[in-house]
Write a protein that binds this DNA or RNA. Structure first.
Lengths: 375, 375
DNA sequence: CTGAAAGCGCTTACAG
DNA sequence: CTGAAAGCGCTTACAG
C-alpha cells in the first residue's frame, strides 16, 4: 500500500497527521478535489505552438510536420495529457458512445442470453474506441420519447437493439429519422433495419432431423413470442420437417412459452396434459427447455427416458443442468461483436442495409434419447 | 404505420416516388440527416429573452418570475426542445453518467449474479436521471490507466464496482484521488471504500444451522476466492458453527470453486474423493452449487438422498435446476439499486463512508434432506 | 428579475 | 506547415 501511495504521489492519509487537522468526522478519508487536468491550451503554451496544432497532432492530421509531431507527442506523453471527450464531442460530430437497448423485462440484464450478446458488443466496442451505455425500453421511456432523446440530446451515436420484435412499432421512428440502429439476433421483416442474426432455420432443421432420427413423431414445440421472426423460423421448420416425415400438422402441439423458465414449464404442462403421447419437446430457447424439464420431472416423467427435451441458444449453464441439455449453439457473443462492428460502420457513414447471418450447430448432450415405444 | 408516418412527419419512403430520384443503390432507405434540433439560443430568440433566462427556466432557478417561467416553459413544450447534454456537461460539473465496472471475466455480463446487480443499478440510475456505462477491467484497461481516464476524460461522474476483491490493488488509485466509487455486494477491509453489501454471515449461519439440524456433520465447503471478504465471512461462520457443534475443524473439507459451475464441479469432485463420508456440500454461490450437483450426479450420487447441496445468492434459474436448489436469498437487485443511490449521493457531495447491509434469508427447496445414516 | 459576456475545452475552416 | 479565430450549446458569475 505504501509503495502505491509513493508511486502515485497518493493523497490518502497515511497516518494521523492530516486527520488531526480535520474536524471530528465519521470518516478519515481526505477527499482532495482531483487536480485540474492539463488542457490542450496548457499543452500548446508549453510547446510554443497553437492549440490547433496540438489538436491536429492528437488527431494525427498528416499536415503537421514530423518535427512538431514528435515534439508535441513527447509532451503529451510526459504530461499524461488526455483530451476532455466532452469538449471533443461538442465540437465534433461524434460521442463515440453507443447504447444497448433491451425490452422492459423484469431484471432484463440478469439473462444469460442478453448477457452473451452484451459481452460481445462491449468487447468489440472497446476495441473500436467506443463506450457502451445501457438502456431498457420501459413504457415511460417510450412515452417520453426517450429513445429519440438518446440521439437528440447527444447521448449516443447509435443504438443496438436486443430482444425486440415486430410488435415494437416505435422502432420505426428511429429508422425513419435515419439514426444508426442495428438489431442483434433478430430481424423485423417490415422494417428496413440492419441486423446480424444466426441461422435459426438451419439450427431448427438439425434439431428436427435429430429428433426424427431418434424415432420421435409426437413432438411438442414450445416457442417464444410469434412476433419474433426467428421464432417463426423455428415454427416453420418444425412444421415442414414433420410434414416431410408424413406427420400430420396439428397446431395444438405448439405452445407459447414466453421465453422464460416459468413459461416453458407451463407450456410443457399444457402440452403433456393435452397429448400424453408426446415423446419429445422442442424448446425455442434454453430457458423454456429448462422449464420444461422441471415440469416434466415434477410430473414424474423422466428426461430423456420418457420424454426428450431440446433447447436453443446454448447459454452457458445449460451444460450443467440435470440432465445436461441438448441444444443448438447460437454464437451470441459473436453476433453481438459483429453487430457492434456493423453499427459503428453505419455511424461512420455506411448506408447499405447489413444482414449478416452466422452459422449455428447442434450440441448433443443428455436430455435426448430414442423415442419410447408404444403408448 | 401510415398513421405513425403522418404523426411524425415521417420521412421514410412510402412508395417509389423519392426512390426514383436516387441513383440505383443497394438500399431503398432514405437516410435524411436528422434535422438540426432547436437550441437554447433559438428558444431565447423566439421568447424574446436571453439565453441565460431560458437556461435558468430549464434549471428551475427560483429567481425567474412566474410569468417568464410559464412563457418559456410553454415554448419548450411546444418546440419539444431538449437540451444538448454534451454542452450541459461541458459547462457544468456533471456528466450524469456512472460506470458499472466488472472484473475481466470471460463473458462477464452473461452472469445472473452480475446481471441482477446491474438491473438494480440501471433502474435506480434511470430514476435519478443518470445513464449507465459498462466497463470491464481488462489487464490492458488497467495498464493504460483507463480507470483513471474514465474520470479525467469526463466519461463519468462515478464508478460502481461489482465483483472486485482485496487483490485489486488499483482500486486504491481511484479512492486516493477522491473519485466517487462504491462497491456493490463486497467490501475491502483495507480500503476506505463506500459499499452496500448483504448479511453474508447471517445467511451462512442459517445454512449451517439448517444443515446441522438435518444431522449433517461431515459438511464440505466450496468457497469462492479467499480474497473476497464476503466469502471469508462464509468460511468464518462455517468453521465456528461446526465447532460449536463439536465438529473438529479440518480445512481439507474446504475447496476453492472459483465462483463457477466448472470450478464447483471440480471442487465437489475433489472433496468427495478425499472425504467420501461427506453428507452435505455448502456452496459459496449458486453457480458452484449447481456445478457440485452436476458432478455428484455424474458420480452416481443422488442429491439430496446421498448428499445435500446448498447454494448462496438465489439467482433466478436455480429454482428450476434439478433438484431445485436450497439457497440463501441475496437481494442483489436491491443491493444494486441502493448502491447506485449511495454513489449518486457521493457524487453530489456526501463525504461519509457508507456501509449499508441488507438482510438475507434461507430458501429451502429440494436439494437438501436429512443426513444419510452410517457410512 | 433579466441580460451581456465570459468560459467550458475542444475542432475546423480559413488565412498566410 | 502553422496560427488566429469562430464556433459547438450550454451555465454561471456579474451588472444593472
Amino acid at each position: 500500500m505504501s509503495a502505491r501511495l509513493t508511486q502515485e504521489g497518493g493523497s490518502r492519509v497515511p497516518g494521523g497527521d492530516v486527520v488531526e487537522a480535520q474536524p471530528e468526522g465519521t470518516s478519515s478519508i481526505v477527499h482532495v478535489a482531483p487536480p485540474k487536468p492539463v488542457s490542450l491550451r496548457d499543452l500548446a503554451k508549453m510547446a510554443n505552438v497553437s492549440v490547433a496544432t496540438v489538436s491536429m497532432v492528437l488527431n494525427e492530421n498528416p499536415r503537421i510536420s514530423r518535427a512538431t509531431q514528435i515534439k508535441v507527442q513527447r509532451l503529451i506523453e510526459r504530461t499524461g495529457y488526455r483530451p476532455n471527450r466532452i469538449a471533443q464531442s461538442l465540437s465534433s460530430k461524434y460521442t463515440r458512445v453507443i447504447a444497448v437497448m433491451l425490452p422492459a423485462l423484469r431484471h432484463a440484464f440478469a439473462d444469460a442470453y442478453f448477457g452473451e450478446l452484451i459481452s460481445g458488443v462491449c468487447d468489440k466496442a472497446g476495441k473500436l474506441g467506443h463506450k457502451v451505455m445501457l438502456e431498457s425500453a420501459k413504457p415511460e421511456f417510450l412515452k417520453e420519447k426517450r429513445h429519440i432523446e438518446l440521439f437528440e440530446r447527444r447521448y449516443v451515436d447509435g443504438v443496438m437493439l436486443l430482444g425486440f420484435n415486430d410488435r415494437h412499432g416505435w422502432l420505426g421512428e428511429l429508422v425513419d429519422r435515419g439514426y444508426p440502429v442495428v438489431s442483434a439476433n433478430n430481424y423485423m421483416p417490415d422494417l428496413p433495419l440492419g441486423h446480424v442474426t444466426c441461422d435459426y432455420r438451419g439450427g431448427a432443421e438439425q434439431i428436427m432431423n435429430y429428433l426424427l432420427q431418434l424415432g420421435h413423431r409426437k413432438v411438442g414445440l414450445i416457442a417464444g413470442a410469434e412476433a419474433t421472426a426467428t421464432q417463426r423460423d423455428i415454427i416453420g421448420v418444425y412444421r415442414s420437417r414433420l410434414q416431410a416425415h408424413g406427420v400430420e400438422i396439428d397446431d395444438s402441439y405448439i405452445e407459447d412459452g414466453r421465453f422464460t423458465e416459468a413459461g416453458g414449464a407451463a407450456a410443457a404442462e399444457a402440452l403433456m396434459s393435452r397429448h400424453p403421447q408426446i415423446t419429445a419437446l422442442f424448446g425455442g430457447n434454453d430457458k423454456m427447455a429448462v422449464g420444461a424439464i422441471y415440469s416434466l420431472t415434477r410430473r414424474g416423467l423422466r428426461v430423456p427416458e420418457d420424454v426428450s427435451v431440446t433447447g436453443f441458444d446454448d447459454i452457458s449453464h445449460t451444460a450443467y443442468v440435470n440432465p445436461a441439455l441438448t441444444t443448438v449453439h447460437v454464437p451470441l457473443y459473436e453476433v453481438g461483436a459483429l453487430a457492434c462492428e456493423r453499427l459503428i460502420e453505419r455511424i461512420r457513414g455506411r448506408t447499405d442495409q447489413v444482414s449478416d447471418v452466422l452459422p449455428t450447430h447442434l450440441v448433443v448432450r443428455d436430455s435426448t434419447a430414442l423415442a419410447r415405444r408404444g403408448e
